[in-house]
Design a binder for these strands. Structure first.
Lengths: 227, 227
DNA sequence: TGTCGATAAATTGTCGACACTTTGAATTTA
DNA sequence: TAAATTCAAAGTGTCGACAATTTATCGACA
């Protein structure tokens, strides 16, 4: 993951480390979606006290990866088609706005960097079809930079901090690594042009269509699989 | 507060109660914005252990009312004009989408209830100018019902659970109880018609303009005050 | 006088133990 | 047999104490 978030600091406390470990395991599906979380069991597994584990659970809840009920306990969230639809609708709204703001607020050098990211991605064209990983990295990196370009701290916090890993979880567990490779790349370019033209209205619309198309693509794939 | 959120349960644990108490005090400004939070001090004040207090702090952080740094501690968030702008941009995006989805997904009886809420609000017309409280209640209630009408759990969680009290905090601390009373009421009606016409596109646009207008109104007021 | 460094005080992070609630199985009762 | 009740086991919530880190205080030195 090359996405350096300037806002986020390296893990300091042991609770931070447990949080990152569990986050990874949930996203990748090593801890199964929908499964119950036993505090004593996991505390023993990671060799920490329950207090520390609970601190980690609180952060997992903050990024919507687990849900807690009083006096009952925690469960990993389920991955449903409905849930996928819902989170893409939220992304469409928020990243659309982020893109509009990016067109208003990005510095010229930030836009230059965004362009470089796309170029580097374009040069990997030959790799793209074979190795899906780079495609996903490139996609995430692009979206990430646009969000940061909004210069809206609240928006950045919600998208990069609280929703980002849930999106990754859906990508992992529904096995969609390289959706619409060349098409998505061209859409990214169109968005970049709109931003560098400072056309916020168009930038927002293009980003919304881009995310909506990505969602429909996934839904189609899931329908096929279920036939 | 008459807004019954079917999703939210009554406070069960003592941490729940401390959370609600502190939430209220932060929103109302009894605990000052930007102030440092001392865990030992507050634990003594509320007569609970630090573990319980920290549990409450975690929930306050979830709804963006405090911010924590590792090994340093917690601070209540600041209320800046920039912050106000940012949160209204987020609202514009999310509530706009919620409104579009509400036009798609609300049941007929839900729409009927929404209409009743507006009618009841209209009958309080005579109270409106004098007693700002009802206006605010009515405004919040309307927005609340539209959000619930989206039937998007993720959206509801973010808007009603995580952002709602921060919005209230800004309203309280910048002292804007009854903004644009009659104008806002008419805008609500227009939104309601768009929803009952099942015109999602228009409903979204009207809600976005409604929130943007509310933001501009506040900004104008703040500018005047600073003169 | 002002800056730097060391020590002391205060604060946060982590731990293990106990209290309370929920869950499920065994027993009783209709 | 099925439903309700009781009781035990497991799990979560809360507590006070200790460890690690940060912050404040004081003195040495340029």
């Amino acid at each position: 993951m090359n996405l350096k978030n300037p806002a986020r600091q390296a893990p300091i406390t042991t609770a931070d480390k447990i949080f990152e470990t569990m986050q990874h395991e949930i996203v990748e599906g090593e801890i199964l979606a929908g499964s119950k979380i036993s505090e004593p069991e996991l505390a023993k597994k990671y060799q920490v006290s329950r207090s520390t584990l609970r601190e980690a659970l609180n952060r997992l809840e903050k990024c919507h990866l687990i849900e807690r009920k009083a006096n009952v306990g925690s469960r990993v969230v389920e991955c449903s088609v409905q849930g996928l639809l819902e989170i893409y609708q939220v992304r469409e709204a928020l990243e659309g706005m982020a893109c509009r703001l990016a067109a208003q607020n990005m510095q010229d050098d930030e836009i230059a960097e965004l362009q470089q990211v796309l170029n580097a991605h374009g040069n990997d064209q030959q790799l793209k079809d074979g190795i899906a990983y780079y495609q996903e990295e490139g996609d995430l990196d692009f979206h990430y930079r646009v969000i940061l370009g909004s210069h809206n701290e609240q928006l950045i916090k919600i998208l990069c901090g609280e929703l980002y890993h849930l999106v990754r979880m859906y990508r992992c567990q529904f096995g969609m690594n390289s959706p619409r490779a060349t098409r998505a790349y061209d859409e990214h370019k169109a968005i970049m042009y709109a931003i560098s033209d400072r056309d916020g209205e168009l930038a927002e619309m293009l980003m919304r269509r881009h995310i909506a198309a990505s969602r429909k693509n996934i839904e189609n794939k899931l329908e096929k699989e279920s036939e």
